[in-house]
Design a protein around this nucleic acid. Structure first.
Length: 428
RNA sequence: GGGGGGUUACCGAAGCGGUCAAACGGGACAGACUGUAAAUCUGUUGGCUAUGCCUUCGCAGGUUCGAAUCCUGCACCCCCCA
């Protein structure tokens, strides 16, 4: 059992704990049960969940048992922490679908089949839904002094804001607190981890545990993973980076990490990978002495893509990277191409278009949606911004024929550095 | 209610009878450079069957050989006075 506390500490993953002195010893003197919560607002987790997920993984590897809790019940309510407005409620069907998607992703990160420390995934709706309102008020609610609740940051900030806070959201912390009590009673769970914005909810659970069970529970929060420029990690102009390959292809996922700013790589490597201290520090140095190599980014992207999308996902991402950045496209078959170009719009055309004279390049560009008009297409070609299978097109009157097929049915068009379109020629 | 100003392409903004598909700036796109970064430089930025043709300057009419530019009406916006 390695010293997880020390490891977390040097990585900078410990923001606050409820027992700074006790925790290190407590963790190293036995196998403990730890939990973290995940929000089921979509059918996939996104990059923002990676940090707590990795936390659980670290604990599991250190010999502790992780419990991931998805808030089937609390998800219907919405945590006001760090949120500026009331959350929309979800239907039970949506939630069920979301939970299924999330579970499959967790299996990449946590081991659900390793004896005593097997990870567990639980849904708080399983126990919450059994409560009647009266019972909940009597058993749980009476342990919560309202004046303490009003003192929590999550509540305070909303009370003073224009959006206000509904009674439903106000009650959120009772639910999360009760989760902790339940997990302690049923599974012996004694430590809750979460982002620093969860401090209020975590301590609420610890207080409740003491009142209801007389139990000594612990809490630990980690810093939020933000970029140096203050924006949230995992968000791009085009939306969040998701963990599911359906929502964010392995290529895009890989690229996201490859493009992390130099200043952010150190934190990302510490927070999100399991690389050894010496290796990370070596990468940090390289990042300063030879930034153009982007060794940190490459390592980060590689580690995370392999973890979330597996080796095959990683190799697809690497292959796609090579192609998207200039390599000529050859010796790939339809299946590989379609996998690599998963994010790229494609356009079905009849194979007969290629026979005889062939298909004019400008036509093809417009049909593919890459260009809005012939004029735009003509301009781009003149400027040298159009490529067929990654080979620059020189002439405006270039025609596409069977010889241009790079695989059985595909021709790849590209405009500029990275705008692609796939033309598929079928016989149908 | 009275008076004045405005409405131009993705955005801002010139133009105030022909040489206007409309200056300039931003953005966007492409190229060079580069670390798939930042900055910089260059080019492009209504459509087409393209040395020409068509549609665009709030909307609808009108004057004129000719209108983004002048006139009339309408709509919306801003300012001042009541």
């Amino acid at each position: 059992m390695n010293d997880i506390f020390e490891d977390l500490q040097w990585r900078g993953l410990i923001h606050q704990t409820t027992a700074d002195e006790l925790l290190p010893g407590w963790l190293s003197s036995g196998s403990r049960t730890v939990y973290a919560g995940f929000d089921p607002t979509a059918d996939s987790l996104h990059v923002g969940s990676l940090l707590p997920l990795m936390m659980l993984r670290r604990f599991q590897k250190a010999g502790h048992r992780p419990i991931a809790i998805v808030g089937g019940a609390t998800g219907m309510i919405g945590d006001p922490s760090g949120k500026s407005a009331e959350r929309n409620l979800q239907t039970p069907e949506q939630l069920a679908a979301n939970l299924a998607g999330i579970e499959s992703q967790m299996r990449h990160v946590l081991d659900f089949d390793s004896g005593d420390v097997s990870a567990m995934l639980v849904n708080n709706n399983d126990w919450m839904s059994r409560f009647s309102y009266i019972e909940f008020l009597r058993d749980v609610g009476k342990n919560f002094p309202v004046n303490v609740m009003l003192g929590k940051d999550s509540v305070k900030s909303r009370l003073s804001s224009e959006a206000g806070l509904s009674y439903t959201e106000f009650s959120y912390m009772l639910l999360q607190a009760y989760d902790f009590v339940h997990l302690n009673r049923e599974h012996g769970c004694e430590l809750q981890i979460g982002g620093s914005d969860q401090w209020g909810n975590v301590t609420a659970g610890i207080d409740l545990g003491r009142r209801m069970l007389g139990a000594q529970l612990y809490g630990m929060t980690c810093p939020l993973l933000t970029k140096t420029d203050g924006s949230k990690m995992g968000k791009t102009e085009s939306g969040a980076i998701w963990l599911s390959p359906e929502r964010t292809s392995p290529y895009k996922f890989y690229q996201y990490w490859l493009n992390v700013a130099d200043e952010d790589t150190g934190t990302c490597l510490r927070f999100l990978t399991e690389l050894e201290r010496s290796e990370i520090e070596a990468l940090d140095e390289l990042c300063v002495s030879a930034p153009e190599q982007r060794a940190s980014q490459k390592k980060l992207a590689e580690e995370l893509t392999r973890l979330i999308h597996g080796s095959s996902g990683l190799s697809t991402a690497l292959q796609a990277t090579e192609i998207f950045f200039g390599a000529e496209i050859e010796n790939l078959d339809d299946r590989q191409l379609i996998e690599i170009f998963a994010d790229v719009p494609n356009c079905e055309l009849s194979a007969t278009e290629l026979s005889g004279e062939g298909l004019g390049i400008m036509d093809a560009l417009v049909k593919s949606g890459l260009m809005k008009s012939n004029g735009e297409a003509r301009r781009s070609i003149k400027q040298g911004g159009i490529y067929i299978n990654n080979r620059r097109v020189g002439e405006i009157d270039r025609r596409l024929t069977v010889a241009d097929l790079t695989s059985e049915t595909v021709i790849v068009l590209r405009s500029g550095k990275k705008k692609y379109a796939l033309l598929r020629f079928s016989n149908a």
